[in-house]
Amino acid sequence: MTMKPSDRSYSVNRTDEEWREHLSADEFAVLRRAGTERPFTGEYTDSKTVGVYACRACGAELFASETKFDSHCGWPSFFSPLAGDSVEFLEDRSLPGRPRVEVRCATCGSHLGHVFEGEGYDTPTDQRYCINSISLTLRPADG
Rank of each mutant, 00 (worst) to 15 (best):
D142E: 14
Y121P: 02
A54Q: 13
R20V: 08
E91H: 14
T49Y: 08
V87I: 12
V115E: 00
S11H: 14
S9Q: 15
G143R: 09
D122P: 11
Y121S: 08
C58Q: 02
Y44H: 07
L62F: 02
E21N: 10
P5D: 15
W19Q: 01
L62D: 08
P96R: 13
L82P: 12
G51Q: 05
E66A: 10
R56P: 03
P124M: 03
S135H: 07
H111I: 03
P96F: 13
H72R: 15
D46I: 09
S24R: 08
P140A: 10
F116N: 03
D46K: 02
P81Q: 10
H22D: 07
K48T: 09
P39D: 00
F63R: 03
D122C: 00
L138N: 04
P39G: 06
T41C: 02
D46H: 00
F69M: 00
Y44I: 10
R8H: 07
C73E: 11
F63G: 00
F69E: 08
T137W: 05
A64Y: 00
V101L: 15
G120Y: 06
S94R: 10
A106D: 05
L90K: 13
P5R: 15
C73K: 01
R93S: 15
S47Y: 06
E102C: 12
P96Y: 12
R139I: 06
M3C: 14
P124H: 04
C108M: 01
S135N: 07
P76K: 07
E61Q: 09
R100M: 12
E91V: 15
W75A: 02
F89C: 13
E27R: 07
S11L: 14
E21G: 08
D70P: 04
T125F: 01
T67W: 08
L62C: 09
K48W: 04
S77G: 01
T41E: 01
L95S: 15
V30T: 02
F40I: 03
T36F: 10
A106N: 03
G143K: 05
E91W: 11
P99W: 14
S47I: 09
L136A: 09
G113N: 01
P140L: 02
D70V: 11
E18Q: 15
V115P: 04
T137E: 05
L136N: 07
H111K: 00
D92M: 13
T49S: 05
P124D: 04
V52R: 06
S47P: 00
P96G: 13
F28P: 08
S94H: 12
V87Y: 03
E21C: 11
F78G: 11
G118E: 07
L62V: 09
S11T: 15
T41F: 00
G97T: 13
H22R: 10
S110P: 07
P99S: 14
W19H: 01
E18K: 11
L23W: 08
G120I: 02
S110E: 03
E91T: 15
A83L: 11
T45A: 08
S65D: 09
Y121N: 03
S94E: 12
T123A: 08
R100L: 07
D70A: 05
G97R: 13
A25S: 00
C55P: 04
R98T: 14
F40Y: 01
E27H: 09
L136V: 10
R56K: 14
A57M: 02
G59L: 03
A54D: 06
E66L: 10
P81H: 02
C105V: 02
A64I: 00
E27N: 11
R100G: 13
V30F: 11
D7R: 05
C108P: 07
C130S: 03
E61R: 11
L112A: 09
F79I: 05
